[in-house]
Nucleic acid binder design. Sequence first.
DNA 1: ACTGCCGTAGAAAGCGTTTTCCATACGTTT
DNA 2: AAACGTATGGAAAACGCTTTCTACGGCAGT
Lengths: 368, 368
Amino acid sequence: MPKSAQENKKRRSLLDIRAVAARAKVSIATVSRTINRVPTVNAKMAKRVWDAINELGYIPDIQARALGSGRSGMIGLVVSEITNPFFPELIQGFEDAAIENGYEILISSTNYDPKRMELCIRRLLQRKAEGVAILTFGIEQPLFEKLADRNIPLVFVDAGPDRPDVSVLKIDYAHGIRQGVQHLAALGHRKIGFISGPLTLHSAQSRLAAFLNAVDECGIHAEPEWQVEGDHTFEGGIRCMERLLDASMRPTAVMCSNDVTALGVLHKAYRVGLRVPDDLSVIGFDNIQMAKVMIPPLTSIRMSPIDIANAAVKALKEHIEADHPRREYKVDTCLVVRESTAFPPGAMDDLKPSQRSDPKPLPSIAKG
Amino acid sequence: MPKSAQENKKRRSLLDIRAVAARAKVSIATVSRTINRVPTVNAKMAKRVWDAINELGYIPDIQARALGSGRSGMIGLVVSEITNPFFPELIQGFEDAAIENGYEILISSTNYDPKRMELCIRRLLQRKAEGVAILTFGIEQPLFEKLADRNIPLVFVDAGPDRPDVSVLKIDYAHGIRQGVQHLAALGHRKIGFISGPLTLHSAQSRLAAFLNAVDECGIHAEPEWQVEGDHTFEGGIRCMERLLDASMRPTAVMCSNDVTALGVLHKAYRVGLRVPDDLSVIGFDNIQMAKVMIPPLTSIRMSPIDIANAAVKALKEHIEADHPRREYKVDTCLVVRESTAFPPGAMDDLKPSQRSDPKPLPSIAKG
DNA sequence: ACTGCCGTAGAAAGCGTTTTCCATACGTTT
DNA sequence: AAACGTATGGAAAACGCTTTCTACGGCAGT
């Protein structure tokens, strides 16, 4: 059973600010001022205090500090799912950026569950986060209204609620996707498939639109049969690839709305004996760490989690400190060419290897 | 610049427990009791209070609550590196288990940096975590002493400081590794390589010892040239595989101390045109999600992050609540057979496919 | 009707900080 | 030498909650 509150308090109170004050023979106010580096405290006093702190091993209670000062020093980060390989990198970047800017972070993952999302937000409010970055895939309007009504600085990715008091990170999907399509077109592909994310998501729609636009620019016909809607999962990638294989005319290249989907595509190709990139070129999106580990290493469109994290923290910081009410921040994307893209089948025979875009055309397993 | 403390306080104080008390026309004590479900509060009163809470949208300040009650309700989790694919699953499991048990969690990652580890611990102490699980690879003695001296419940994995007041999660590496070796032996392998982790780590030593033991049990000669020391990274896996390829006699199978290393092995094999599993069998360790996504899907030894997380939370809970000072918890490991293991080269021709251990022997790319 | 006991709610004293306000001591100016 | 700033440290009031202690009202027992 839980210990009594009294007991708990006793145990903790052994190492107060009071203890430090007593030891240094000053008042607790001076100790507090010393710790917080208030300039009015005399150097001699300060030394006495620091010595006492070190001798005692005193560590201030940050919750009491927050209560006293009215500032929690924390910003929150809400992600979709920590086990989705895109997010750990984002979290890491966010944490680094936050520390750099003097904040601590509070991480919550929604697991795509509105109930859990509700919990996350409650948690962040309870802990008095000074700002929150919602870097999830889907967004649930009512919850954001709830958050925004608390007058807490907010950052969204792609698109948030249309309110004047939130910041938005605009990701330039079009740039990377255009590069990807041009890359494929330059290799000679004319039949390019696209596996989108769930089209209920704004980001998925944007990516599809960018693809259609880029394809059009390159003068390539966008066969509707080659555009299938996935769900950003590995299994979804497998299913979508199956549909693409059933098409009356198969595409020679597939672009995917995220890397995990691309892994599914690679997997299905492997299952049916299609060689990548010889028989099929594949491009992913997100450039997760796994991309360069895959066999073959995956050509992907990079959306830097570090950039996103930095932009998010910067937006939050400006909003909190400078009362900057709203800003848009741009995040760029660009193509990273690896080994999952090559000439379409048949084209290779006519060309010298040096003309391949891949700088080191290594033999695929099938050729070994 | 930061807002003045006064301002901050003002802004927040709009929605106190006092506001609720006023609205419900009761004392703040009654509001507190209602929220904490103290049974002595009359149902009628309680309803009045809940109504007021809902109408106002009141959310209690959890830090103030912690200060008042002497319990923070938080347990800490320290991991090595969030971008290492083993940890997100562990974190997820830990979070779920913690929520289940009424705790919130505080995550810290050390990034293998002692400085950062120091920061982590400071953070956890500042926030008054009620217990801490140190589920990292390496451990730094002095820091733990520091932690343990604070009299805070602690859980370590594998081996912690030898103190009577900490719990330890003992992972039974031997079981899974024996299964792996037996699996390879049953397939006919007699030349089995082993890529260990850095031998400064206790866990790496245990795994190597378990391997040597298992090999011995199976009556297989353990050629020293086939045991190389890796570093648990992808690049390390590649380097180790290079060394194995340079051996005077090449092994026909390789066991790895973790999956990421195995990915490096797979990669190097791909580079030099060795087909897995036809030319080389590979077994990983950890069974991270990526394992089943790889091409070919990786046979691996499963060390369930969920089991570890549950055991850690359970140990912490018992220690915190029941004052159980020390316990050992067992965590098992077991082999998961996928498609990166098969008969050694040449052996297959003599046998019918049905005798392969793999239930669905799918053609590798090379055969397609 | 008086005492005593519950059940229940309010008052008030913390919890460990920060911060405002005030007091002191010292050096400077006239 | 008196008056006055100017540093600087201490006392005490917050901060928003929990919890102990106390008080009140009603009911049963005598």
